[in-house]
Simulated scan of single mutants.
Amino acid sequence: MAINDVALTASMRANLLQLQSTETKIAQKQNILATGNKINSALDGPTAFFAAKGLTQRAGDLTALKDSMGQAISTIKAADKGLTAIESLIEQARGLTTAAYSALGNDAGSIATRKALAAQFNSLKGQIDKLAEDSGYQ
């Protein structure tokens, strides 16, 4: 026998193999705990691995669709707020046109009133245009 040779009995060899097997299983379980995946490669279980991969891709697709739906909802909300504000300004403009219609005389007071109402109307029209431009999303 050489100096570095170690003699093992059959029971010691069996115990050593059992310890090595246990160590391998512990490493696999630690990998599962670290990654959160029950199966990390096709070697661990091909059917479950490819099924999980397909489901993960599908979940990613659904997440992207959900994000797109969120963007669409935000766009609709922005448009709704813009339309509500524009509707309010249109009601004010309608009131100004009614007031201008009631001041249809040719006297100086009626002309001055219509001129002031026209300036207010043009101001409201500018506000409506700005609101229409700002009512977009992103």
Rank of each mutant, 00 (worst) to 15 (best):
L117R: 02
I32C: 04
T97F: 11
Q20I: 05
I86A: 12
L55F: 05
A132M: 07
A108N: 07
S110A: 14
T75L: 10
K130Q: 15
A103M: 06
I39E: 06
K38R: 15
L55C: 03
K29F: 09
A112Q: 13
T56H: 08
A10M: 09
L83S: 11
G136V: 11
Q71C: 05
M1H: 11
K25G: 01
I86G: 00
I76H: 03
R13A: 14
G60S: 14
T9M: 01
K29V: 07
T22Y: 11
K77G: 03
T63C: 01
D80I: 11
L62I: 13
N40E: 05
G105E: 07
L89H: 03
S68M: 13
M1D: 14
Y101I: 03
A93M: 09
G95F: 01
T113D: 04
A116D: 05
N15L: 15
L104H: 13
Q71Y: 08
S11F: 13
R114P: 00
A78V: 02
A27N: 04
Y101D: 05
S68L: 06
G105R: 04
Q57N: 09
K81Y: 12
A119C: 02
T98K: 08
I26T: 01
E91A: 14
L117Q: 05
D5M: 11
T113L: 06
Y101H: 08
A64I: 08
A72T: 15
T47N: 13
L131R: 03
A103E: 02
A10C: 09
I26N: 05
A52H: 10
S110P: 02
G105Y: 00
F121D: 02
G82V: 03
N122K: 13
I76C: 06
A118I: 03
I111R: 05
T35W: 01
Q138K: 11
T9Y: 02
I3R: 10
T22D: 10
A118L: 14
N122M: 14
A116S: 12
L19F: 12
N4G: 09
Q57V: 00
G105I: 00
Q18S: 15
L8M: 14
D80L: 13
E91D: 15
L117P: 00
A100R: 00
L83R: 08
Q120W: 04
G109V: 15
T84F: 07
M1P: 15
G36Y: 09
A79F: 10
S74R: 05
S102P: 01
N40C: 07
K77Q: 13
I111P: 00
G36N: 04
R13P: 00
K130G: 08
L83T: 08
T24W: 05
T113V: 08
L89N: 03
A100S: 12
L104K: 12
A72M: 14
K125I: 14
L62R: 06
T113M: 01
A103R: 00
D129M: 04
A48E: 11
F50K: 08
D80A: 15
G70M: 02
D107M: 03
N4V: 11
D67I: 05
A108F: 03
Q92M: 13
T56A: 13
E23Y: 10
A42P: 02
L19R: 14
Y101W: 08
A10S: 14
L17I: 02
A34L: 12
L104F: 10
S41K: 04
